[in-house]
Every structure is written in structure tokens, then in C-alpha cells.
Amino acid sequence: MLRSAVRSAAAGLVLLFAAVLAADAGVQGGGVAAAPPAPVRLVSAKKGLPLDGPTVIAHRGAAKYAPENTLAAVDEADRRGVEWVENDVQRTKDGKLIVIHDATLKRTTNVEKVYPDRSPWRVGDFTAAEIARLDAGSWFGKKFAGERVPTLASYLNRMERNDQRLLLEIKNPEKYPGIEKQILAQLRSSGWLDATHVMDGLVIQSFGVAAVRRVHTLQPDVRTAVLGTPSRAQLPEYARFADWINPPYKSLSSAYVSAVQSLWGPHADRLEVHTWGVSVGQAKRAFSAYSVDGVIL
């Protein structure tokens, strides 16, 4: 595919850019530079979101430009040249996997109008068919009226069509026992557990450390990530089952990033740091001053 050709052509420039960032981090730190990060890739030949550089991951799709966690947001990320997309997965009352962030349907759909007597409108209290009736786009803008809450299956199909990569977050795993196994089954059914996706197109993350561990146990070849800022004392244990540590920007320090990147994960690769909760300016600093591997923007 065209994007595969772009990745190959950009490889030399990527290595040079990574080296420059590592050297810059050492200068700003005023001491010996931390070990340089592993090679990182350009987002694409096009300008991604408002930011180019090492890995940029579109948070809930291109959520600043289209309603979050919808197929429209996936397509907007693709239009803006962003290969990696982050999403959130939860489960309906009848056991279907859907893509939505909040524990309730209130903020991003018209659920109050359609089902006025079912407050507090928790995701797990509605069937997939009931949720499929909801408008998940009008709250963001009239042009997105009629956009729906996607199933995980439809989301994966759209990303595959766009040749995108997925950072999948298991949201509130404690509310949905067994969801890790179910997500893996859907990924397998959709063709996302083949060697190509597993090696270079899929990472599963969660704030729930137990959920991340379960994913690794169930499907050891899939890369995983822990959201949050584990203590440095915890990092060696987490490196047994997690490939990425993804802390919020406000908790970053050069020492912490270096501590993470000094460890090797379950797939014999250096642990990576992908930060979130960032502005464009903070993202640029995260690359240059902290040498993170990526930002979720």
C-alpha cells in the first residue's frame, strides 16, 4: 500500500530525527544524555493533525475535528495523515462490544431525548440495538448529525480500510468481567491478530493493570500498555507483561522516562513511553525535552 511505501522511504529521516531529539534532550538536561530512544516513525508523508514528529496517536480519533470515538473521527484522523488511532471499548447490556469513552451515554449522544426515563444512562444498562438508535454526532456539530456509536467490529473494519493502527483501551474493565477475552475474540474474528497487525499495528492498554496482565496471559504476542504513572519500583514487574507505559504529561520527568526506557519488555524490545493530556506545545516539548516515544493527542 502507499502508506507502506511511505514508511520505507521515511526510515532514514526518522532515524536522523530521533538522533537529533536525543541529543537535544541531553543538552537541555545539562548532563549526560539518556540512552537515545529506539527508532521511531513519521506519522506519514502528510502533515498529521497539527503536529508532525515521532509517533502521534489520534486521541479517540481526530476528536478535535469530529465527534470522538466515531467512524467520522477515524476517517478524519486518516484524512489528516495520522496512522495511529486510540479508542475506548465497553460492553452493552446484551454483551456487545462498542466504542465509547464515558461510563454513561449522556455527554456524547441524545440518549436523554430518546430514553428520558432511564437515567443515569449507563452504557451497560442498554442493549446494542438501543444504543444503535442514538445520534452520536449532533452534539459536536450539525454536519455530523446521525453519526452512530460504532460497534468494535465496525470500527476495526473502518480502520482496516484506512490502513490505520490501533491503540485500544479497555475502559472500566472491572465493570465487564471477561471483556479481555471477548475483545481478543473480536480482534481475531476481524483479522487483527495476524502477524502484521500484532507486530506493528495493535496495542491494547488500560488503567486496569489486572486487565493488561490478563491480555498478556491470554494472547502473549499482543503488545500491551499500562496507563498511568507506576512508581519506579513497580516498573520491573510491569515490564514482564507491558510493552508501553503511558503516563499523563503532567507527571513526566526526564528521569522517569529514562527509567522506563532502560527496561526491556516481554517482546524483547525497550519499553516505550507515550504520553497523553497534552497540548501541541507540550507534545513538542515531550519529544524534545523528555524523549518520549509518542504522544496521544
Rank of each mutant, 00 (worst) to 15 (best):
M1K: 02
M1I: 00
M1G: 13
R3V: 03
S8E: 15
A9H: 12
A11Q: 13
G12K: 10
F17D: 15
V20H: 10
D24I: 05
G26I: 11
V27I: 14
Q28M: 05
G31E: 08
A33R: 13
A34L: 10
A34D: 10
A38I: 08
P39G: 15
V40E: 12
L42Y: 06
V43Q: 09
S44P: 01
A45D: 05
L49S: 12
L49F: 06
P50W: 00
G53T: 08
V56W: 13
G61Q: 04
K64S: 11
Y65R: 07
Y65A: 05
E68S: 06
L71W: 02
A72L: 07
A72D: 08
A73R: 06
V74T: 02
V74S: 03
A77H: 00
R80F: 11
E83W: 02
V85C: 14
D88L: 05
Q90E: 14
T92C: 11
D94S: 14
G95E: 04
I98D: 10
A103L: 12
R107I: 06
T108A: 12
N110L: 12
E112N: 07
E112Y: 02
Y115C: 05
P116N: 14
R118T: 04
S119K: 08
P120F: 01
W121D: 03
W121L: 04
R122T: 07
V123Q: 12
G124L: 10
F126C: 03
A132V: 02
R133F: 05
R133L: 10
R133K: 11
S138W: 09
S138R: 15
W139C: 11
W139I: 04
K142D: 13
F144W: 13
V149Q: 15
A153M: 07
A153T: 09
S154F: 00
M159F: 11
L168Y: 03
P173L: 02
E174S: 12
P177D: 12
G178N: 06
I179Q: 15
K181I: 03
Q182G: 04
A185N: 09
L187W: 13
S189I: 07
W192P: 13
L193D: 05
D194Y: 00
H197K: 07
M199P: 00
L202K: 11
S206F: 00
A210Y: 12
V215M: 10
T217R: 08
T217H: 07
V222W: 05
V226E: 01
P230L: 00
Q234Y: 00
A239N: 04
W244P: 00
P247S: 00
Y249V: 08
L252V: 04
S258E: 09
W264N: 15
P266H: 13
H267N: 10
D269R: 14
E272P: 02
H274K: 01
T275W: 09
S279C: 13
A283F: 11
A283N: 06
K284Y: 07
F287M: 12
S288D: 11
Y290G: 03
D293K: 01
V295M: 13
